[in-house]
Design a protein around this nucleic acid. Structure first.
Length: 271
DNA sequence: CATTTCACCTGGTGGC
DNA sequence: TGCCACCAGGTGAAAT
């Protein structure tokens, strides 16, 4: 899964290749799982439209479609979803659920083995495009960030993963930013000190920006729109390093379950 | 309402 | 080589 940096990388890559292109025809797989909008309505809405712009909101990829009705195509990659721009004669991978044939002769393909991804048409309400469920981690101010966690009794890691608070943060960047800020994942969100909130706000933004600059983390099968892997996995300090020595203090990194998610932290560096 | 747990899927890995 | 348990970037419904 792609989290904020991976989705940003994919959206940027797709925008570069697809912006201005016309969707000439649409094929949607028969399995209904990925579609929040019915396949018939989705295909009818997309066919013949020009793509004005592609960008990221939270973990969603938003396609602005040309036209006065303000319709948008929303793609969520789930855990294993990929959006690929391919030549029309390139072999179609298994688990391909959507193919958009473009006027340029290329195809935009949605591939998702686990089928946790979602596709939908968003109808603009009151002149507003798709906004996402929460606040943007990259642009939120420290004051707004601190206010999100006030009086919350859930562990800080669970709060970071709650998309209605901040959208875009997932398991990798929650663990990595808590390590960088020196905070244990189980610490109650509402009990963080002002200093901890300041460190966490800075750590999260620094890590997300760094990860975007490196094209995201390729843990297993993540690739961008050109099929290229990212490099931020080489910078992980705790994620998936359970049992290995902390790169700062040497103590073994611990792995535990928190909210059903694998959680990694350093018992020496995080308080 | 806030919070936690679990189902939803396929595939890769490691132990036996 | 096979079988099986367990794990994986996420979310949202149901239970508490």
């Amino acid at each position: 899964m792609p989290e904020l940096p991976e989705v940003e990388t994919v959206a940027t890559g797709v925008d570069k290749r697809v912006r201005g292109d016309v969707i000439e025809s649409v094929w949607l797989g028969s399995k209904p799982e990925p579609f929040k909008t019915s396949p018939i309505e989705m295909a009818a809405t997309l066919s013949g439209r020009r793509v004005e712009r592609v960008y990221r909101v939270g973990k969603h990829i938003v396609f602005d479609l040309e036209g006065a009705d303000g319709l948008q195509w929303i793609v969520h990659l789930g855990m294993t979803g990929r959006l690929l721009v391919a030549e029309a004669d390139a072999p179609v991978e298994t688990h391909t659920h959507a193919v958009l044939r473009l006027g340029s002769g290329r195809e935009l393909r949605f591939v998702d083995p686990r089928r946790f991804g979602r596709l939908a048409i968003h109808r603009e309400a009151a002149g507003q495009g798709f906004r996402g469920p929460g606040r943007e981690p990259l642009t939120i101010t420290l004051e707004e960030f601190a206010a999100l966690f006030k009086n919350r009794k859930t562990p800080i890691k669970a709060a970071l993963l709650n998309q209605k608070l901040l959208h875009g943060v997932g398991n990798i960047y929650a663990d990595e930013s808590l390590f960088r800020a020196g905070i244990r994942p189980k610490r109650m969100a509402g009990r963080l000190t002002r200093e901890q909130l300041t460190r966490l706000h800075a750590a999260l933004q620094e890590i997300l920006r760094h990860a975007i600059a490196l094209g995201g983390s390729s843990v297993s099968d993540y690739v961008d729109a050109d099929g290229e892997r990212g490099f931020f996995q080489l910078e992980h300090k705790v994620y998936m390093r359970g049992g290995e020595p902390c790169l700062t203090c040497g103590l073994p990194i611990r792995r535990m379950l928190l909210g059903g998610r694998g959680t990694h932290y350093c018992p020496g560096c995080q308080k």
